[in-house]
Computed example of a mutant assay.
Amino acid sequence: MFWRKSFVPTAQTNKDIPLNTPATNLTFTVFDTETTGFAVGSQDRIIEIGACQVKNGKVQEKTFQTYVNPKRDIPPEITELTGISNVTVEQAPHSLEAIQDFFQYVEEGQGDIWLGHYASFDLLAIKKEIQRHQYRIDFPICLDTLDLIGYLSPAQHMLDLEIYASQFGSRIYDRHQALGDALTTAHLFCELLYHLEERGKTTLFDLMEISRITKRHTLF
């Protein structure tokens, strides 16, 4: 394998952020993907990307959503779950084009930090799509709401986003749709920030210390 060129998503906007920066002074890009299945490290592909941003502790109005043509059939059970069919993605951009559009949204919004619910899954899905096109990419800091919830409620071991949103009293949007799940995660994150502040956890360093995803990721 060879790398045709370097492919950088956000112009390293978070590279020099002081770790003592208050979380409410940062812009978080909250993202989610829908895929053809759960084996995103091998055969499964992205079929939708959705994102929104949290700035000054509030969810912003400008959002991002695109379907993605996976160049393979979408299983019936995934269509039933997400509402996304082969017809839905027939005229959609291919994965690299869709990811580039997503990165442009991140850069335009100056999204310092990425954040997701079970973010490792969505990061892997994006990494594998980029790897298939033989590109190299540097990822920014990415935090996971599951880690933050684990700190606030150690007894919780579920992954279900809707259950957590209900427990923390935050808004719930369309489930198993990338933008809907990103918005649900963003509003949940705002509630988590409030509870973390009550415990004296207010800075980027605090969030990184809590989260197990503390380093920028490089795909080789």
Rank of each mutant, 00 (worst) to 15 (best):
P70T: 05
F31A: 10
D138A: 06
T35F: 11
Q65D: 06
F168M: 00
P76E: 11
Y164N: 09
L19V: 11
E191L: 06
D147M: 02
S211G: 15
T24F: 10
L124S: 13
I210N: 00
A92N: 09
A155K: 11
K201H: 10
E97W: 00
C190L: 01
K5F: 12
P22V: 03
E107S: 11
H176I: 01
L26I: 13
Q104L: 14
N56P: 01
I130W: 02
A92R: 07
Y105V: 00
Y105Q: 02
K62I: 07
L219M: 07
F205Y: 13
L115F: 00
D122Q: 09
P76C: 06
Y173R: 01
F168A: 01
I141S: 03
Q177L: 04
H157G: 11
E108H: 10
E162M: 06
H157W: 02
T203Q: 10
G116E: 05
Y118E: 01
P93V: 09
D73I: 03
G180S: 10
L159E: 11
K58Q: 15
E198F: 03
Y173F: 15
I47F: 05
G50S: 10
F205N: 14
I99L: 09
I213E: 14
F102H: 06
E129G: 05
F102E: 07
P154K: 04
F28M: 02
A186Y: 02
E48G: 04
S153P: 00
I47M: 04
E61H: 08
I84T: 06
G180A: 07
T63E: 10
Q104P: 00
K71S: 12
K127C: 12
A178L: 09
T79S: 15
T202M: 08
D160H: 15
P93T: 10
H195G: 04
T184A: 03
Y135N: 08
I149E: 01
L207D: 03
D73G: 06
L207Q: 04
C190I: 01
Q156C: 11
A98I: 07
T36S: 10
E34W: 03
T21H: 11
L161R: 05
V87F: 14
F7D: 08
G111F: 07
D44T: 06
Y67P: 00
E197R: 09
I149P: 00
Y173W: 15
R212H: 13
Y118G: 08
V106Y: 09
A178S: 14
K58H: 13
P22Q: 06
A51V: 02
S170T: 07
C142H: 03
Q43E: 14
H117C: 01
D138V: 04
D174V: 12
Q104I: 11
K215T: 12
Q134H: 13
A182F: 02
D160W: 06
T36M: 11
K127Q: 12
D138F: 07
L183S: 03
T218L: 12
Q177V: 02
V30Q: 01
K15C: 06
Q167L: 15
L179C: 11
D16C: 06
